[in-house]
Simulated assay, not measured.
Amino acid sequence: MRTLLFALLLPTTSLADGFVPITDRETFLSYVQDRDLRLGVLGITLNVEPDGTIEGTAVRWEVTGTWDWKDGFFCREMDWSGMPIDYNCQLVEVRDGSEMRFTVDQGAGDSATFRLR
């Protein structure tokens, strides 16, 4: 279970599916500020705050972390109930203002799509 959650928190790519890349911090914050990022099937709820912190839960366990925006990518490191989730810079894309996809390794790796609530 931890491996699956780790892969999802790390965040597949395709531009033909309506997702539009976000390339700057201000646009990113306009979507996530005061909203939850949710991946319901695994019970993941995350809040990404303007002050560079990440808080939430995954499978009822606490998630904490920090983030920054670097060279057009969302870069973060997190801790999931004592399990470190390594630093990684991710491509962020949004669709219809209601879904946000994070793709690890600057868009070259696996992805996870969250609902914005």
Rank of each mutant, 00 (worst) to 15 (best):
M1G: 02
R2A: 01
R2H: 01
T3F: 05
F6P: 00
A7F: 07
A7K: 06
A7S: 06
L8S: 01
L9H: 05
L9K: 03
L10D: 00
L10K: 00
P11R: 08
T12H: 03
T12I: 02
T12N: 11
S14D: 10
S14T: 03
S14H: 06
A16E: 02
G18H: 12
G18F: 11
F19Q: 00
V20S: 09
P21T: 05
P21A: 01
I22V: 14
T23C: 01
D24Y: 07
T27K: 13
S30K: 14
V32Q: 01
V32S: 04
D34C: 04
D34S: 10
D36R: 03
L39I: 08
L39W: 06
G40M: 14
G40N: 12
G40I: 09
G40H: 10
L42C: 11
G43Y: 10
I44Q: 01
T45F: 02
T45V: 15
N47S: 07
P50Y: 06
D51V: 08
D51E: 14
D51G: 10
G52N: 12
T53G: 13
I54M: 02
G56K: 01
G56A: 05
T57Q: 14
T57W: 03
T57H: 04
A58P: 00
A58W: 00
A58H: 03
R60G: 05
R60C: 08
R60S: 15
W61R: 06
W61F: 08
E62Y: 09
V63I: 15
T64Y: 12
G65K: 08
T66D: 15
T66N: 15
D68Y: 10
K70L: 11
K70S: 11
D71Q: 14
F73W: 06
F73D: 01
R76F: 09
R76W: 09
E77I: 08
M78R: 05
D79W: 02
D79K: 07
S81T: 11
S81Q: 12
G82S: 02
M83F: 03
M83I: 07
I85L: 11
I85R: 02
Y87W: 12
C89S: 07
L91V: 07
V92S: 10
E93S: 15
E93Q: 15
V94H: 12
R95M: 14
G97K: 09
E99Q: 15
E99D: 08
T103F: 06
T103H: 02
T103A: 06
V104Y: 07
D105I: 10
Q106A: 13
Q106I: 09
G107R: 05
G107F: 08
G109V: 13
D110M: 13
D110I: 13
S111D: 03
S111A: 15
S111I: 00
A112P: 00
T113N: 02
F114L: 12
L116S: 04
R117W: 04
R117A: 10
R117G: 09
